[in-house]
Simulated assay, not measured.
Amino acid sequence: MTPAVRALEAAGTDFHLTEYAHDPRAEAFGEEAAKALALPAETVFKTLLARLDDGRLVVAMVPVNARLDLKALARAAGARKATLAEPALAERTTGYVVGGISPLGQKKRLPAFLDESASALATLHVSGGRRGLEISLAPEDLVALTGARLVGLSRS
């Protein structure tokens, strides 16, 4: 089991795990998950790490069919600017590989921000901590476990 699954089990949170055959040639990991599991793209959230202009790292979760608005993320985090973290830094910080970064069970707990579109969903889907593994859970449970703030983070 992954640290994400262990964190959910330790918290007693209701969740569902789904595995799919990951294609090693895939580059859009979240979109691959949505397609493989026949899920609406707006319910599948990618987990991204960003570096703020003051050096802090933060976690942002947005639907796979949207782009992260880095200006909105910076504002929400109280910074002037945000840039996506380099993949190697994201992997070292979270303990997960790119394409399998879960917002749950990361090595270091970082400030987290969840796109406000999640509040309209009964269930959302995030990486289970490895490519080919998705966790389905209630948005309010994800917020409770990550301490995420709901903010407008996505743009089409």
Rank of each mutant, 00 (worst) to 15 (best):
Ala118Ile: 12
Ser102Asn: 09
Leu121Tyr: 12
Glu91Lys: 09
Glu31Arg: 03
Ala28Arg: 09
Ala76Gly: 07
Ser156Gln: 09
Val62Glu: 05
Gly152Met: 07
Ala21Gln: 14
Arg149Gly: 06
Ala118Phe: 09
Arg56Gln: 13
Thr43Ile: 02
Ser127Ala: 11
Asp14Lys: 13
Phe113Thr: 06
Ser127Pro: 04
Tyr20Thr: 03
Leu84Ser: 09
Arg155Val: 09
Ser154Gln: 11
Ala148Leu: 05
Ala50Trp: 05
Glu27Met: 10
Asp141Leu: 10
Leu37Met: 05
Asn65Cys: 13
Thr47Val: 07
Lys71Met: 10
Leu153Ser: 14
Ala112His: 06
Ala74Tyr: 11
Lys108Tyr: 01
Thr43Met: 10
Pro139Cys: 14
Arg92Ile: 02
Lys107Gly: 04
Ser117Met: 07
His22Val: 01
Val62Cys: 12
Leu49Tyr: 05
Ala79Met: 04
Arg109Ala: 13
Ala82Thr: 10
Leu104Lys: 03
Ala88Glu: 11
Thr13Pro: 00
Thr43Arg: 09
Ala10Phe: 07
Thr43Gln: 14
Ala120Trp: 01
Ala148Ser: 04
Ser136Glu: 15
Lys46Ile: 08
Phe113Cys: 10
Phe15Val: 06
Ser136Lys: 04
Arg131Asp: 01
Ala10Tyr: 11
Ala50Asn: 12
Arg80Lys: 09
Lys35His: 05
Asn65Tyr: 00
Pro103Arg: 04
Arg56Lys: 08
Ile101Pro: 00
Ala28Glu: 10
Thr83Val: 12
Phe45Asp: 00
Lys108Trp: 01
Gly132His: 07
Ser117Arg: 14
Ala82Val: 07
Asp53Asn: 11
Leu49Lys: 09
Tyr96Arg: 00
Leu37Tyr: 05
Ala34Thr: 00
Gly99Asp: 04
Leu142Ile: 15
Ala122Thr: 15
Leu89Lys: 05
Asp53Glu: 03
Asp54Gly: 07
His125Arg: 06
Glu42Arg: 02
Ala10Ser: 11
Lys46Glu: 14
Ala33Asp: 04
Glu19Cys: 03
Val58Arg: 07
Glu31Met: 03
Asp141Trp: 08
Gly128Ile: 04
Lys81Asn: 08
Gly128Met: 05
Glu32Pro: 00
Ala85Cys: 08
Arg109Trp: 02
Ser136Phe: 03
Gly152Trp: 05
Ala50Thr: 09
Glu31Gly: 01
Gly99Thr: 09
Gly95Glu: 12
Thr93Ser: 05
Leu37Thr: 10
Leu89Tyr: 01
Pro139His: 11
Arg80Ile: 10
Phe45Gly: 00
Leu73Trp: 06
Lys108Leu: 12
Arg109Phe: 00
Glu32Trp: 00
Leu124Trp: 10
Gly132Asn: 09
Glu9Lys: 15
Gly12Trp: 06
Lys108Pro: 00
Leu150Val: 10
Ala76Asp: 06
Gly147Trp: 05
Ala33Glu: 03
Gly55Ile: 06
Gly128Glu: 05
Gly132Thr: 11
Lys71Ile: 08
Arg92Phe: 00
Ala10Thr: 13
Gly100Ala: 14
Ala26Gly: 14
Glu27His: 12
Arg56Gly: 03
Gly105Trp: 04
Thr18Cys: 08
Phe29His: 15
Leu104Met: 07
Ala77Lys: 10
Gly147Asn: 03
Ala112Asp: 08
Pro24Thr: 04
Asp14Tyr: 05
Leu8Gly: 01
Ala26Asn: 13
Asp115Glu: 11
His22Leu: 02
Ala122Val: 07
Thr13Lys: 08
Lys107Ala: 13
Leu114Thr: 13
Ala72Ser: 13
Ala148Pro: 04
